[in-house]
Design a binder for these strands. Structure first.
Length: 821
RNA sequence: GGGGGAGUGGUGAAAUGGCAGACACGCAUGCCUUAGGAGCAUGUGCCCAAAAGGCGUGGAGGUUCGAAUCCUCUCUCCCCCA
């Protein structure tokens, strides 16, 4: 600080606590970030971050997600786009209700208090949000359209009600969608889920499975695309029927599904799921007792245990046999709990030679193991584990010698020709279960008459308002079942009706919110089409990878449904996606309870700009990072240096034409090029480091005093502009202090001159056998030959080469010379 | 078990076929200061007292004039799926 004080007795130190609130207020008063739907000579650019759940406080993880995203939006604005960067709250969901139960607070009140607090905290970040477009999904103006789209889907067969096995979360006391179960546990509560039979509402996402696999037009990380692809889980296979006509029951065949029909000649037994309806029909009287007791055991075992690869495979013989249609071999039929009734056909053809689970089962029950696919270098010996790879067929009658690929094709064709079965495509993806037996969500707009028949609420009667409730205890039934006023309707046409009491999965809310940001207010329609078309699809979406197979898949599905219903033409909601990494502290996840890191005190002490810059400087945004209080100092020191050089009294510099002017100019242009190219691809860390380099060198230029006032001022202007997207407050203040017109955020980024950004003097590296031995500086315009001879004449190189013979000379233009000896 | 990503100083990291460690933290020494969780200067990959030199991007091999970067195998960690 001595430097400033010496140079300028009027020096005012950097005080973020004063300037940050000041500018936040001025921005708000001037509606600086209010985004018009069109702006003359500017293209629209929709920069969206995944909106938060209003859990109460914005933690540092939110800062990590939202401030670099804002820097990118600001950067695009300064590149000349009309940028919309909206924010809202994903405001329905269980925590509100759980707070109501635990602390006896009204969920609505709790939610709105949290929203108010978080909106205040959002404003501390200095983000360029257009709050005029804010949306809260828990308001009737918003959820009315959830209901509207649900009815549209219902009348088009996409929403339907079905009784069947569902995942049940015993802590949250509600059903869950398949995507919301991870490793057999509820993604939200962490409880082990159980299977229940219940009628529930579904959306037919499986109709779109094939189209959802098409991701060519998406500029998304491959990782996310792969996760979606794996989740959809398309597999090509064959359904083949094993003959049981000799058993004299109504069923004549057992259908199994396999992706490896090339192993059909290796089938030595069949395993049915214990729940398979055929089991009772085919079990012989001798086996009845054993089968019954096994079934009881299996039903009480969790699905996770049953499919665990660690667990012993068990089963019981049914006493019956079937016939392999391809070779007429007699095949014994077992039941085993590692086969699930809910996947495929509930029966598998077991090929112990080439499937590990079948191999384990065969070992345990002494069943024959037949090898029909030859592993590489196999000479007929027995295997100690299943060979699951592809190979050449053996012991497979006329198909011997074929490759697995070819055999799959030929055998499938034969099976279809002879009517033994058919080629089938299966998907891992299940229809989206959207019913939740909880209160704080969108009521499903359905009524049941006294016969239990389904009647959709008519669109004119929307929204079905979520009533205020008094009791929220999860009982396994929606708390709405306790509200008689809500529940019973006297319908003019159908008489006494009962409302559906389940509410919608909150992922419905986030499946189309981006559309509403583009067109926030129409009361009579879900959105205004010209506005929608001018903003959509979202140009840049930013958020965490945890939503890869939930939100991101649902939103793509919703987009395609609404497209097919004629609302718009675009195929995808989010054109580009960037996933930020996870922010840790002491190598651990930051959480409210165990490892807290509250941003508000940090902002109070160091300022929002410092926190923003530190988070961006940590490392590459997509890799995440580890917060450290110690390294934070680097950024606060640098901000002080920035403040210092941008507020110096320049009167002691000569006005123009000084010796080093060209060098400070070249430095500026190099930095412009580097920062602009880095921000484009979210490399904030290296953009900041090149700005640091520039400030360090500018200090040196100042100390030498061989620069003019004009050149200095020009460089100061450039540094403020380049820093503006990342540190909006300090740059606004310095912009004003340097006499420029409000606001720096409405300026364009400077452009660079390629010639100025390039180096004139080039350092040539001299290597011998690829090892660095010396280096020298040349002028750009030298001939290749001259450069090589210069290199040969270097004292060091001469000494080393004295007793050596040069075999080869390699010259890489303007980079290096390598002598091979 | 399958798929994907990562592994570089004491620390966060940079370099994506051409000077390994930019930038920053920390540390050390010095200066300034009544004081410092302030500022300034210099140094800081490892080995060697220093210089010269050698070694060095998880490990082993390969391609290349040249590899952190490309290829093969392998170890460790993280994520997704079973």
């Amino acid at each position: 600080m001595t430097k400033n004080i010496k140079n300028n007795p009027n020096f005012i130190p950097y005080n973020p606590a004063e300037i940050e609130p000041k500018w936040q207020k001025i921005w708000e008063e001037n509606e600086l970030y209010k985004t018009p739907d069109t702006k003359k000579n500017k293209d629209n650019y929709f920069a969206l971050t995944m909106f938060p759940y209003p859990s109460g406080d914005l933690h540092i993880g939110h800062w990590y997600a939202f401030t670099p995203a804002d820097a990118h939006a600001r950067y695009m604005r300064m590149k000349g786009y009309n940028v919309m960067h909206p924010q809202g709250f994903d405001a329905f969901g269980l925590p509100a209700e759980n707070a109501a139960i635990e602390r006896n607070i009204n969920p609505k009140k709790w939610t709105f208090e949290n929203i108010n607090n978080m909106r205040r905290q959002f404003k501390l970040m200095g983000n360029s949000y257009d709050w005029h477009r804010e949306l809260l999904t828990c308001t009737p103006e918003y959820y009315k359209w959830n209901q509207y789209f649900f009815l549209e889907m219902y009348s088009n067969g996409i929403a339907y009600r079905k009784d069947g096995p569902v995942w049940w979360d015993p802590i949250d006391q509600t059903t869950l969608a398949n995507e919301q179960v991870k490793d057999g546990k509820s993604e939200r509560s962490g409880a082990e889920v159980i299977k229940k039979m219940m009628p529930q509402w579904y959306l037919k996402i499986t109709d779109y499975a094939e189209e959802l696999l098409e991701m060519d037009e998406l500029e998304w990380p491959d990782r996310i695309k792969n996760m979606q692809k794996n989740w959809i889980g398309k597999s090509n296979g064959v359904e083949i029927n094993f003959d049981i006509s000799h058993l004299s029951i109504s069923e004549k065949t057992i259908t199994t599904f396999t992706t490896r029909i090339d192993t059909i000649f290796g089938v030595t037994f069949l395993v049915l799921a214990p729940e398979n309806k055929l089991v009772d029909l085919i079990t012989t009287s001798e086996q009845k007792e054993a089968v019954e007791s096994y079934k009881k055991l299996a039903i009480s075992t969790s699905e996770i245990d049953r499919t665990s690869t660690e667990r012993d495979k068990t089963g019981v013989f049914t006493g019956s046999y079937c016939k392999n249609p391809l070779n007429n071999e007699k095949v014994p039929i077992f039941i085993g709990d590692y086969v699930l009734s809910t996947y495929g056909t509930g029966a598998v053809m077991s090929v112990p030679g080439h499937d590990q689970r079948d191999y384990d089962f065969a070992q345990k029950y002494n069943l024959p193991i037949k090898i029909v696919i030859s592993p590489p270098n196999w000479n007929g010996e027995n295997l100690t584990e299943a060979y699951t790879g592809e190979g050449i067929l053996v012991n497979s009658s006329s198909f011997d010698g074929l490759s697995s690929k070819l055999a799959i094709e030929k055998i499938s064709n034969l099976i279809e020709k002879k009517n033994f079965g058919k080629k089938t495509i299966t998907y891992h993806l299940r229809d989206w279960l959207i019913s939740r037996q909880r209160y704080w969500g969108t009521p499903i707009p359905i009524m049941y008459d006294q016969n239990g028949e389904i009647h959709p609420v008519s669109k004119e009667d929307l929204p079905v308002i979520l009533p205020d409730a008094k009791e929220f205890k999860p009982t396994g039934q929606s708390p709405l079942t306790l509200d008689e006023d809500f529940l019973s309707i006297n319908h003019p046409k159908y008489g006494k009706m009962r409302r559906e009491t389940d509410t919608m999965d909150t992922f419905v809310d986030s499946s189309w919110y981006h559309l509403r940001f583009a067109s926030p207010n129409p009361q009579e329609k879900p959105f205004n089409k010209p506005k929608l078309d001018s903003w959509m699809p979202v140009h840049q979406y930013m958020g965490g990878a945890e939503h890869a197979v939930m939100h991101l898949l649902y939103a793509r599905f919703f987009n395609k449904v609404l497209r097919d219903l004629g609302y718009f033409k675009f195929n995808e909601p989010y054109k580009r996606l960037f996933n930020q990494g996870v922010l840790l502290k002491d190598h651990q996840k930051i959480s409210k309870r165990s490892n807290p890191l509250a941003p508000d005190p940090l902002v109070k002490e160091h300022g929002a700009d410092a926190v923003r810059l530190y988070l961006m400087f940590l490392g590459p945004w997509d890799q995440g990072g580890d917060w450290s209080d110690e390294s934070f100092n680097g950024i606060t020191r640098w901000l002080k240096r920035i403040w210092n050089i941008c507020t110096r009294d320049t009167s002691e510099l000569i006005q123009e034409n000084q010796k080093d002017d060209i060098y400070i100019k070249k430095l500026s242009h190099k930095t412009i090029k580097k920062v602009i190219n880095d921000l484009k691809i979210f490399k904030f860390n290296t953009a900041i480091s090149s700005l640091m380099e520039m400030t360090n060198l500018m200090n040196k230029f100042w100390d030498e005093r061989k620069i003019s006032q004009n050149a200095w001022k020009e460089s100061i202007k450039i540094i403020i502009l380049l820093l503006a997207p990342m540190a909006p407050h300090i740059t606004e203040e310095l912009w004003e202090k340097n006499g420029y017109k409000f606001s720096v955020h409405q300026e364009n980024l400077p452009s660079w001159d390629e010639n100025l950004a390039a180096d004139e003097d080039i350092t040539i590296i001299v290597q011998i056998n690829g090892k660095l031995r010396d280096q020298f500086v040349i002028n750009k315009n030298l001939e290749d030959k001259e450069i090589i001879s210069l290199a040969l004449n270097l004292e060091k190189i001469k000494n080393i080469l004295e007793s050596q013979e040069i075999k080869r000379e390699i010259y890489v233009k303007e980079k290096l010379v390598n002598f091979v000896v």
